[in-house]
Design a protein around this nucleic acid. Structure first.
Lengths: 239, 239
DNA sequence: CGTCATATTGAGAACACTCAATCGCCGTGG
DNA sequence: CCACGGCGATTGAGTGTTCTCAATATGACG
């Protein structure tokens, strides 16, 4: 699973890394980056791999280099809610806590740059800029969680599905700040349902509605083309 | 409305203040506290007062000294979702952003300790401990928002109302780390409905169910006594 | 080409919503 | 003092959206 441990010298892998630019590593100067790079390992996992277990002490943190990670909360009776999706170059983990209240699972194949708890914690103590980056991401995730609270609490099934597609089309490509017209949904219908607080069948029906209305087209269950963005935005009722 | 501007000397008001202990001011040393104290003003507002307007540049930040603040998101068609409740000694405001995506409104009479944007921003640049406190609160709010996502997406009306009462009984008294058996609901039925993604009528019916089952008693619409905590926890299906 | 997982579609049931009437509380004014 | 009006909450009846259960269809992979 582990592909590479950085050599003692310059962190050459970091040069091409998204986390270096927009992610938390952008807060680090060259020496700190080398220090982190030496102790970090890049690994690639399959879809479905559990990355963080809720309620269990996490051994470390990671940056997402590519792929999509879903954050999941579970009820004792088995119901589950996806409380967030994370994309490259997001930081993965819960600072200041021994264990996370959510579990994280790779939704697609995911490449990670992982490092031990102690390293990051020691570096945040030394580097206010790093703490600031982490803080900024926490606030972004908070804004996003609240957007989803609105969707979960107030929107109808069709509005939920339309909002979900627009959200994905905006976030799926880290290099494109706008909306993507064509993309793959990195989730199964069951996951979409768990994200939107719906059932598989309702999700499927709403996708069929959008397809029959000529707003989107779907091939091979996962690959979506948005044919009419205006109609999709109207259906989503964005705020 | 404005009651007091701190004098130039020692911030005597801070000594009895919750924010000094558990809030963000706990991160400040005496000189910084004096500096902040000099530029902060304490004010008391009525229930219903808008404290932060969504999408408008906020002039400052504040600590909640007492009372309850609701955070609200609005859809263009008028539907609204309450995305959070804040209690003393929480910090109020959105660091790193010109304007907040949510609006804040006093749910009960609220006492605030307010200070200008620039003062806080300058102090966070100087004091990593302050930034860390703000970061920690953001993470707490994120955990809470995700708890609510679970409730909004997966739980039934009766589970939602039971969860809401338990949440309030835990948070209503900043001095008591456990659950309060007796407390006032700081929200109208309409607000509870907007929080839980239900209608007024459904909230009312579920409260009546809990009352008739002998799990709670309600007087004067607002004041709740929990008679059977175990039953309420069972009804809420906490995770 | 067969098998398994995943997705779609349909029919009926259930839960929460809408609309409407009533109740209770409180402050105001006759 | 009591009548009145307004606001908020409760309760009831009927409707509708979403869920549940079941059957079928599609796609992925050996």
């Amino acid at each position: 699973m582990r592909l590479h441990i950085h050599s003692l010298d310059a962190p050459s892998l970091c040069l091409a890394c998204d986390a270096r630019q927009q992610g938390i590593c952008g807060a680090l100067d060259a020496p700190d980056l080398r220090h982190l790079g030496r102790q970090s390992g890049c690994r690639e996992v399959d879809a479905g791999t559990e990355l963080i277990a809720a309620g269990v002490r996490a051994e470390g943190y990671a940056n997402i280099l590519s792929g999509v990670v879903k954050l999941i909360k579970l009820l004792p009776d088995g119901r589950q809610q996806i409380v967030g999706l994370q994309f490259a170059p997001d930081f993965l983990g819960r600072p200041f806590a021994d264990c996370s209240a959510v579990s994280a699972e790779a939704a697609s194949p995911v490449r990670l740059c992982a490092f031990p708890r102690a390293v990051l914690e020691e570096m945040t103590r030394r580097s206010p800029r790093l703490e600031q980056r982490l803080h900024a991401q926490a606030l972004r995730e908070l804004d996003e969680a609240r957007d989803w609270m609105m969707i979960l609490g107030q929107k109808s099934a069709s509005e939920k599905v339309a909002s979900f597609l627009l959200h994905l089309s905006k976030r799926i490509d880290p290099y494109n700040p706008g909306y993507a017209a064509c993309f793959d949904i990195p989730l199964r219908r069951a996951d979409i349902a768990d994200f939107l607080g719906l059932t598989i069948e309702t999700v499927s029906r709403q996708l069929s509605h959008l397809r029959k209305a000529g707003i989107i087209s779907i091939s091979r269950n996962r690959s979506v083309s948005v044919l009419d963005f205006t109609a999709l935005e109207t259906a989503a009722i964005l705020d």
